[in-house]
Nucleic acid binder design. Structure first.
Lengths: 151, 151
DNA sequence: TGACATTATATGTTGCAACAATTATTGTGT
DNA sequence: ACACAATAATTGTTGCAACATATAATGTCA
C-alpha cells in the first residue's frame, strides 16, 4: 500500500515542514502577547479586528463585508457580533432598502475601547518585533507574502 | 486577518504591526490547507501533533509532558485526550508508582492514522512552500526564530 | 405573475481553547 | 506522624471556530 519511503528518508531534514512549524510557533507566541494586552479591554483578537474595521467605516458595514475583511466564516460573524452588541461595542439595524442585510456600526463605547488600545498595541508590536530592524522586517514580510504565493 | 488598506504613511509607521498581520494571514492560510488534509483522517492539527509526539515516545508520556511539547494548556489536554481515547487513537492508564500521573500511549490504530498522513502532509508542505526554494526557506526560518528572540 | 435561484443572515451541533477552581496523590518540614 | 505545600490531572464555565442547514428577502425569467 505504501512505498518504502518511510524507512530511509524519514529523518531527512524536512525544510518545508520545519518552516511551517516555525510559523505556527512564532505566530502563537506573538498572538498570545497581543491577546494578553487586548484582555485589558476584555477583547479577543477577532473582536479587536472587527472594531478596527468598523472604525474605518463610520457608516457601518453588512455582515458579509466584515466577514470578508476578517477572513472569518459568516456564520461565526453573527454570534461574534451578538456578543459585541450585548456589550455595547457595536450596534446593528436592518437596512431599510434591502431588508436582508444588517448594517453594523461601531458605538462610541467601542470606539473608545479601540482607541485606547492603539498606543499600547503599537508599543507591544515594537517590543515584540522592533529588534529585527527595518531591513529584516521588510525581508520577513516579503518572504511571508511570497510564501502565500503573492508576487 | 485584517485588511491592509492603509495609506502609505500609516503603513510606514506600522512596519512591526504590518509584519504581525502578515504572519497571522500566512499562518492562517497554510494551516487551513493542512487542516483540510488532516480532515481526511478526522484529525485536528492539535490531535495530529499529539499523535506525532506519542509516536516518538512508544513508552507513553504523562499529560504534563504532552502539554509542554504542544504548548497547550494542561486543562485542554485532558479533554483532548478524552476524545482521542474514545476514538481508540490513544490509551491511558494510571502510573503504578505515582498514582497522580496518567501515562498516555498511542494505539496501533492511532499509529496507522498518523503513518498514513506522513506522505500527503509532506507533499502538501512542499506544494505550499516548496516554491520558495532552499535559500528562502532558510532565510524565513532564521527570521522567524529571530522574531521570537531566539539567537 | 409565479416558480425558482440567489443573496444575507441566522441557527444547530460539535470540537477546541482560556482561565479559574477542584480533587487526588505525593513530598517536606517540624 | 501530621500539617501543609507541591504536583498531576480533572472539571466548570465561557467564548470561539468549522461546517451543515435553515430562514428571510430579493432578483430573474418564462
Amino acid at each position: 500500500m505504501v512505498s518504502a519511503k518511510h524507512s530511509g528518508k524519514a529523518r531527512q531534514a524536512n525544510l518545508e515542514e520545519n518552516t511551517f512549524l516555525e510559523l505556527l510557533q512564532t505566530t502563537d507566541r506573538l498572538s498570545r502577547g497581543v491577546a494578553a494586552l487586548l484582555k485589558t479591554e476584555e477583547l479577543s483578537l477577532t473582536q479587536y479586528n472587527v472594531l478596527r474595521v468598523l472604525r474605518g467605516s463610520p457608516d457601518g458595514l453588512p455582515c458579509g463585508e466584515i466577514a470578508r475583511r476578517l477572513i472569518t466564516r459568516e456564520p461565526d460573524i453573527t454570534r461574534l457580533l451578538d456578543r459585541m452588541e450585548k456589550r455595547g461595542l457595536i450596534s446593528r439595524c436592518r437596512d431599510a432598502k434591502d431588508r436582508r442585510t444588517v448594517v453594523t456600526r461601531i458605538t462610541a463605547e467601542g470606539l473608545d475601547a479601540v482607541n485606547r488600545l492603539d498606543e499600547p498595541v503599537h508599543a507591544l508590536h515594537r517590543m515584540q518585533l522592533g529588534h529585527l530592524g527595518h531591513e529584516h522586517l521588510l525581508s520577513l514580510t516579503g518572504l511571508l507574502r511570497q510564501a502565500r504565493g503573492e508576487q
